[in-house]
Amino acid sequence: MKLIPENFSHIADEYVLGLLGDAEVAEVENEIERNAVLATAVAEARERFLPLDTTVDPAAVSPVLWDAIATRLPQQAPTEVPSIASVSPRVPIAENDNPRSGWRATAISAIAASLILAVGLVWSVTRTVEPLVVAVLVNEAGEVQAVVEDFGNDTASIRLLTDFAVPEDKTMQVWTLPSREMGPMSLGLLEDAHSARLSGSALPRPQDAQLYEITLEQAGGSPTGRPTGPILAKGFAKLAR
């Protein structure tokens, strides 16, 4: 049966029932990735038949089964949400081996946090200079760590909202990704892990959803001019309005 929209509901049913051949299964799974209509049809078919599975009498499961699973669990693979280092066109592989899998999962809490904080911050700074964008940076666990306000006049203010333990031979460095072509650009170093106003880096006007990130680099800053150390916090900017 051809994989065309008229046939989607039936193909989704047969896919869920396990009635398709190998080649058809591969075709469906490939198409699901980019075709929301087919993906929805499969999800609906799944939910339709799911009660046949969830009403089964549970088997008695031995704890040995869990142990067998636990010993085989790999480290979480990185997700597709890029860190600044991973989209940099010019750096070799960053020595950035902290697991990044949580970034995507934390996006939702980050968005919520950024909305709340952005509103508060915009209000609090309207009486002084207006930042163009505000980015709330979160750690992998989704906890708010810092807020970046970029004023667009080569000045950005970084407020740390938690204590960072920085070893003596290391320093915190702030980055942003104005565009993929440009790659990650340094906004400057945070001496002594304190909040700071950084200026002097001539960068394009900050955009909505621009990525900001703080990494741990060797004292004096990254030797390559690109982020190389572990990511302490990151977040996407929102336009201040």
Binding site: V56, D57, P58, A60, V61, W66, L73
Partner: peptide
């Protein structure tokens, strides 16, 4: 979500809640 963050307790919770039925379904 916990699994995606690398938290094994998340997987354990799924196991505790569903493994018996999942074994039966597979069988």
């Amino acid at each position: 979500v916990a699994c995606a963050k690398g938290d094994r307790n998340g997987l354990r919770r799924i196991f505790d809640q569903e493994a018996g039925r999942l074994v039966a379904v597979a069988q």
